[in-house]
Nucleic acid binder design. Structure first.
Length: 323
DNA sequence: ACAGCATCCTGAAGGC
DNA sequence: TGCCTTCAGGATGCTG
């Protein structure tokens, strides 16, 4: 389940069920689900079997289960991955079940985590934990802490903090925006700069602040950049409060239930439908092998005039230039 | 160093 | 019915 809100719903579901559990056995049904596992560090099954799960932590769209102080089981759901909590006797006959973790919890008894993934872009891996670059807590795992808290899986260390992380550095993000000539949507999707935002929530945030996705990031005023960041936080937070976005049974929580945010979408998937703000039919445009959705009236491209000093951002909110 | 594209994979949906 | 094309919420590695 792709973006931050959906991954957080999964993390929260796992945290309350599996923290303190021990891994009794592992079934790897499809080794393609281990493409991010470095076999040089040892066999996935033997590293996980017998381990005690300390917590469930998330940064952006990555989540991990610390096992001991310096290792974790890292998960990424890719486009279609699910982590489902099941009873030990569940048939688990899903066509796309890739990995099963059989757990034993001191209070909840026996249970199972099934990693199910149709398209196999997702994966599990055991990775070593390395100290965070800024020395702060690595990710989101409310109410639980331990020696692992300020460490991050090595393969996640290049991923930026997400905008809901208290240690997210707003100033650094705005500085980066000012330096990037790329379209602002592309920048929002760069997980090395700000994590957790994907195609849906990028379109939603851009709609909220009336920005065209191809607007050069460096053309935004600092103030517009700040408004965009606020909009990103707002849309992620609201989606999270509604349990994430689901269009079909593919995007579900650990119990297989869907979220409700699809009803609240203003831009994504609304090609041909009226813009909720001005009524103009929304358009869909091709972008990076996928789609962008926007209102052609509210979200216009405002290119800097040729010959204008590039250091002077253009106004992008439609208000008359002053001063 | 950065920007942008192709690629991994499976299944659903729509056109003919 | 069947075949073909297009599309899907992601990250990465390669190219220029």
């Amino acid at each position: 389940m792709p973006e931050l809100p959906e991954v957080e719903v999964v993390r929260a579901g796992l945290a309350q069920a599996v923290t303190g559990a021990r891994v009794a056995a592992v079934d790897v049904l499809d080794r393609r689900a281990l493409t991010r596992h470095d076999a040089a560090s040892g066999d996935f099954e033997s590293l996980v079997t017998g381990a005690r799960i300390e917590a469930a932590v998330r940064r952006g769209k990555f989540l991990w289960l610390p096992i001991g102080d310096d290792r974790a089981v890292v998960g990424h759901l890719g486009m279609s991955g699910q982590l489902l909590l099941r009873t030990p006797d569940h048939p688990g006959d899903d066509r796309h079940a890739r990995i099963r973790l059989h757990l034993d919890h001191p209070e909840h008894g026996e249970l199972r985590i099934d990693f199910v993934d149709q398209r196999t872009f997702g994966s599990l891996a055991v990775d070593r934990l390395v100290p965070t670059a800024d020395g702060e807590v690595a990710g989101f795992s409310p109410g639980v802490s331990g020696p692992w808290a300020r460490s991050i899986p090595a393969q996640v260390s290049h991923i930026a903090r997400d905008p809901l992380d208290p240690a997210f550095d707003d100033r650094r993000f705005l500085d980066a925006l000012a330096r990037r000539a790329s379209g602002v949507k592309r920048v929002l999707l760069d997980q090395g700069l700000v994590s957790g935002v994907g195609n849906i929530y990028a379109d939603e945030a851009l709609w909220a602040v009336r920005l065209h996705g191809e607007q050069p990031a460096s053309s935004l005023t600092r103030r517009r950049g700040g408004e965009l960041l606020t909009a990103v936080r707002d849309v992620l937070g609201k989606a999270l409060a509604e349990g994430g976005t689901s269009f079909d049974a593919q995007y579900v929580n650990v119990n297989g239930a869907s979220g409700y945010f699809a009803h609240s979408l203003n831009a994504y998937g609304r090609a041909g439908l009226p813009c909720p703000r001005c009524g103009t039919p929304m358009v869909r445009e091709s972008f990076m092998n996928r789609s962008s959705h926007r209102c052609p009236r509210c979200q216009r491209l405002r290119m800097p005039r040729a010959g204008a000093a590039t250091s002077t951002p253009v106004r992008t909110d439609g208000s008359p230039a002053r001063r």
